[in-house]
Amino acid sequence: MEFGPHLLLASLEGFVTAAILALTAMGLSIVFGVMRVVNVAHGEFYMLGAVIAWWVASLLGGHPAIGFVLALVVAPLVVGALAAVADRLILQRINYDPDRTIVATIGLLYIIQQTTLMTFGPEARPVEAPFNTRLALPWFEFGDKGLTMFWPWGLSTTSYKLFVIGAAVAILLGLWLFMRHSRFGLLMRATQQDRETALAFGIPVDRVYAWVFGLGAGLAAVGAVLVVPIQQAHYLMGQDPLLLSFIVVIIGGLGSLPGTIIAAVLIGMSDGIISVFFTPTLAKIIATLLVAMVLVFRPQGLLGRRAQ
């Protein structure tokens, strides 16, 4: 394949990564923004989403679309409820102390991951995509005969991948409307701005926290359900998304939701495009060092405000 089409293909793959990453990182960002805690177990909620999707799909049988749609509803609900319970049982009792929360969520990470290993097993298991038509893409070139269009071999994507991008955009839009215009969104934003004042105005901050923690985990689960037809479900699959979500949240500016989306697109795309030019390992080294350097010289992130 020539260079131009290859780059287009890499950008498309990058967009799919970015879409999933935006959902997952948004969950982490909301939790951090409202509750001011770092949730290290976030990647495991993602993994749980994928595992539950496999479970629902394999239990149901029939056309893959039925299982997939049901998983898209069930997985976030179950994972969100689990996270809310964990918040009630653990985080609330340690009063959201930053250091202790990190340790407790590391503990939670191992509990979730190892319980999955004991029940789901160490194998990677696939979930069938609801639809998966191959779409060839055209490429334009300016030659002797003017602008010509042709179909390079291998330049293609699948309808499912385009669906993932569309679904992620739709969910994020829905989330934005929910935060802006619903009563719960109002309570969330009030709690985020000033916990004490919110408490004084009679907002049940404890309950808001549990819902926010559940919502964050649910978003990760949605991302995982979307990704599981492309990537298989595995009990260790939560590690990479955790690391990448961290990067995205920090680069975007802690607690800044638009920043999170911009950073997700940036990181997802560059992940795809850098790997065109370099070997995967070298690409990862460069990306990691770049992120570290951005943080060193602009610790507040791209859209974050400097802390007082």
Partner: peptide
């Protein structure tokens, strides 16, 4: 058990509590 890190995770949560 082969999922021995489960115990480590439980220990961590209990300790922080």
């Amino acid at each position: 058990t082969s999922a021995y890190m489960l115990i480590a995770g439980l220990a961590l949560v209990l300790l922080t509590l």
